[in-house]
Design a protein around this nucleic acid. Sequence first.
DNA 1: CTGAAAGCGCTTACAG
DNA 2: CTGAAAGCGCTTACAG
Lengths: 345, 345
Amino acid sequence: MNDRRNDSHRRNATLRDVAEACGLSVATVSRYLNHSIKLPTATIDRIDQAIAALRYQPNPHARSLSLGRSETIGLVVPDIANPFFGQLAAAVDQAASRFNLGLVLCPSLGETGRELDYLARLSRRQFDGLLFATGNGDNPELLDRLRDTANVVILADAIDALPLPGVVADSEQGGYLGTRHLIEAGHSRLAFVGGPEQIASNRHRMAGFRRAIAEAGTRVTRIVALHGAYTIDHGETAARQILDFDPRPTAIFAASDQIALGLLTHFKQEGIKVGRDISVVTFDDAGPHHLFDPPLTAIRQPIRDLGHRAVALMREIINGNDIDRITETLPIELIIRESVKPPRS
Amino acid sequence: MNDRRNDSHRRNATLRDVAEACGLSVATVSRYLNHSIKLPTATIDRIDQAIAALRYQPNPHARSLSLGRSETIGLVVPDIANPFFGQLAAAVDQAASRFNLGLVLCPSLGETGRELDYLARLSRRQFDGLLFATGNGDNPELLDRLRDTANVVILADAIDALPLPGVVADSEQGGYLGTRHLIEAGHSRLAFVGGPEQIASNRHRMAGFRRAIAEAGTRVTRIVALHGAYTIDHGETAARQILDFDPRPTAIFAASDQIALGLLTHFKQEGIKVGRDISVVTFDDAGPHHLFDPPLTAIRQPIRDLGHRAVALMREIINGNDIDRITETLPIELIIRESVKPPRS
DNA sequence: CTGAAAGCGCTTACAG
DNA sequence: CTGAAAGCGCTTACAG
């Protein structure tokens, strides 16, 4: 016993150490720590002193094992190096830490395998809940697992096929506003460069694109849609294709920042000047677009609100409150900069 | 007992469930799973089938509690929304997952309190190791804790005061190369806009800046150094101050991308054209700088290598191999774009 | 080689 | 109100 005591500055102190140190049972100290007991202030002081002296901190594994929950949520994102997800992660972290919820980042690289793995860890209660941003909402296996998994909230990219709680930006309205802006500038040949054709965010952005075009009637004479992935590579490829069309589209709606980056990179390489030679609006607006040449007009996602709202929803779920299994839509905003100009006749 | 069996499709299966299912003891199954036993193939098949049928997966909390380690490392970064750290996190994740190490992101917001908290969790074995990127390397309390904490590797920002294993970019050489580039373009009035004055990365970048100037002899006639923080705000403030100097510096070395972003934002606002009116080189190069107006000349950090090397070091440490408690320096690269031009006479 | 049992450090239903 | 004890689901030293 003395041995245990003596090297307790080496080992981490356990609940038992502090209980012994103040002549109480571990049960009492545990209850005190979990606020499920009222104690005389003298006792409280003794405990607090022992805790301070021993630098006691609860072992999270033991606690989680016993409790069957971890007080931690996970955030799965396709690519943490993408500033949109970086900013989203920062927003989620801020909200989570306000509620004393741990946050672990779960990068999926867009791989369904990794996503399923995170779901499995959820069911092992390694996480109490999972905030799920995925571009694989059309994958049957993933849908299957998602269907009978509780404590998931969809984030950033809707999954239409399933009634799941979630928060996303208003992609349809974003597609609409951006495209209308293009049309109002006088463009009649439009290109939509999108992500994976079947996933909700892409379909919604495309739907908004279509709505603006329908509204414009005969003013729009030509449309091309190039679906693919929300990546720089796809943007570059699409840029190449667009330059080859005859007649060439004069304005592009890029369904994500990464796509726009690819577009701009290729145009720059080819000496095509955005604004003057071709107009572009992007979606997300998670980059320093005001410093671009030219400054990039964009549909801005409400990143902070998305993150905060998702955490709020998750808290409701974890606390056992009933919640609508529908995904909420947050408003987007058109940020007009200088990448959209009238077409040169 | 039958009860347990019957609802085992509801509960998560435990090791005991699979042991019962194939008529073995939990000890044997556990040993099999941990590769510390040779079994007849018939038995192996039985176990594998039971595992598959019950969809068994080990409970990570139980495992960690029993083992006293978590097979997880943490990455503490000041700001996950900063693309430099986002890209660093992606690199670390890639390396960690290659070794089947879990990674949890620990955003510190630059707060020492949070950093100490992560260190405490490390000593509770919530992490087996911590990759530590901090701008608080001059904080005495943090230094104290770091001194007697094992399993920490310093990342991205050196801590000179302590002999700790780590990996950083060659800030001194970066400061030198960037500044020499400015001087070679013909500038004689130079400004250094840095981060916190006392931290290693800033001092090293400043030292490189000084070395280039010393080397230039009398060609450089005026120097101003504006230390502060690696933030956009500081960049904006510094830009304002620089414009007020008389005579005004004609070239700026920005010690981080965030600082450069602030600089450029203010200059743009004021109608000062970078390249023409003032030259700028940035440090980090984690943004789409080739698309800026003008494209930003930069010192590029070897982000991927930093992340990979840090994980490799951590593995050595975790595996108990002796490792030098020195921080390694990785080479940087000068990326010449168009934000540095000769001064207008 | 295999199994029964102790132990990891908590929480909490159950008795007193 | 408080404590002894069981239990969370693993791993592994110790016996057989």
